[in-house]
Design a protein around this nucleic acid. Structure first.
Lengths: 263, 263
DNA sequence: GGCATCACTATTGCATGCACTTTGATGATG
DNA sequence: CATCATCAAAGTGCATGCAATAGTGATGCC
């Protein structure tokens, strides 16, 4: 009993409040990648001291949503194209695991809940993009939460947020949200209970979301200047020697050609 | 360049230092699950103020290695049996992804590095358990780091630490480290380049580690007292009502019978 | 003697203050 | 006029101090 109180009633969990608020602002693109997050400002906005704001930023940095640079203002993270690709790859595996655990095990109530959520997505279809994106992301988190596995829930949420963040970087408007029907298909397959089928569905669903967003390889708005200029800079001879090679190999393997030519 | 400095030379990254130290202490079982981590003590030990120690604890809590309870002393996390099982399930998927990306793509140098690591494991074979366990875990992290994918590296490290933590809870001494040969097999298969084969190997490797640790279901040393006594206490009639059912279903599905009978 | 209560101590929660770093603007200089 | 040094403003890094809370042992009551 006494233990439960900690979780159900977050008492005065101000750090968590700020985290949630920022997370949401980020996935709704109210805060674009690169946006500055000064501790003072956050503290003032949420009525807390810098200490708390700072702690919250630390948490979000651990989740990969914000970037913390020493002695500099924290900013909303700007994942590279490669990181985005990696994130989606991981996400696919994790969510396959989710549906594998869930297939054929959902209660009627849960299925109704899922359908209700997709209905909400449908309604938001013509509303602002930000809401659609958030709802789509939350669908996946809702799914994960039904596994009742705290670890899985956390990882899926985290990676979903990160993917969401990359969408705001690379995806062109309206490109990411033709997926509502795929959500319905997922629910149906889950109810039916064929684990392999659902896993495959989820795989393709996420794959196509990633493709729509990433294959196009639109000019990475707001991308970090150092990365953008990397291919142009002459190697200063003392830059990372061996380690870079492996990375470069991967970059070339996966990232066809048109890296920053559009700039 | 300037950016790299942040990562390569941690400047005066005291939070990170404390995190690393604690992580290591935890996986070497110098700090057992449930061990108290008072901010003062940490601060004093590492020559910093509580502020820093506190921040470090926050990070570790985000990683699931320590438990933070409001107004109470932080403790090393004590994952439940179910959480352990979940962690391993996730780990399997993530590490399958690792070897899938790595199969046939490792340089000779990297393969040598891996072999060297396993040699070290071999040497530590008769040493203290703690070292063996740490080395075994670090093998997997080394593998992950060769993907050069920061996100994947982080997730694998995190989950590997968590699994390591559960081993110290559930595994009986010496039960977890007959796996050195499996590491060698993995390396060979990676060098050979058959992705499917390596994935399968990794799957079985982790599965058997998990089984050795979890199937036996040894008396959960140091487990949370409330959980241990739960099956004995008479239901006080007002205990958690509906939510528990879904969870319980899962618990019974996966966790055969002998929950705490050995106590 | 057993049990509830209370006070005390250990420890966290959080804000504030000061030192240091970065940034960017301003003015000096060639 | 372009370039560089200087300096103030803004912001972070971190320690410390005070209030609040949980744990613990002592006290008194039944």
């Amino acid at each position: 009993m006494t233990r439960e109180d900690n979780r159900s009633r977050p008492a005065t969990d101000r750090v968590g409040t700020i985290c949630r608020a920022l997370r949401r602002a980020i996935i709704e693109q109210a805060l674009e990648p690169g946006a500055k997050l000064p501790e003072d400002a956050l503290g003032e906005r949420f009525g807390v001291s810098r200490t708390i704001a700072r702690h919250a930023l630390g948490q979000l940095a651990a989740e990969g949503l914000v970037e913390l640079r020493r002695n500099r203002i924290a900013v909303v993270a700007t994942p590279s194209w490669q990181e985005a690709r990696d994130a989606f790859d991981i996400r696919i595996e994790l969510e396959r695991l989710v549906v594998r655990q869930l297939a054929g095990r959902l209660t009627k109530t849960q299925i109704a809940e899922l359908h209700a959520h997709v209905d909400a997505e449908d309604e938001a279809r013509n509303g602002p993009d930000a809401i659609s994106i958030r709802l789509a992301t939350e669908f996946h988190i809702l799914l994960a939460s039904m596994t009742e596995s705290p670890i899985l829930i956390r990882y899926v949420s985290e990676i979903a947020y990160r993917c969401c963040l990359t969408l705001s970087l690379f995806s062109r408007p309206h490109s990411s949200e033709c997926a509502i029907n795929e959500h319905r298909l997922l629910i149906d397959a889950l109810a039916k209970g064929d684990a392999d089928a659902v896993m495959s569905l989820m795989h393709h669903h996420l794959d196509s979301v990633a493709s729509r967003a990433l294959v196009a390889q639109t000019r990475p708005r707001g991308r970090d200047i150092m990365d953008i200029l990397a291919p142009y800079a002459e190697p200063p001879a003392d830059s990372l020697p061996a380690r870079a090679t492996a990375r470069d190999r991967r970059l070339h393997r996966r990232q066809p050609a048109c890296k920053v030519h559009t700039v």
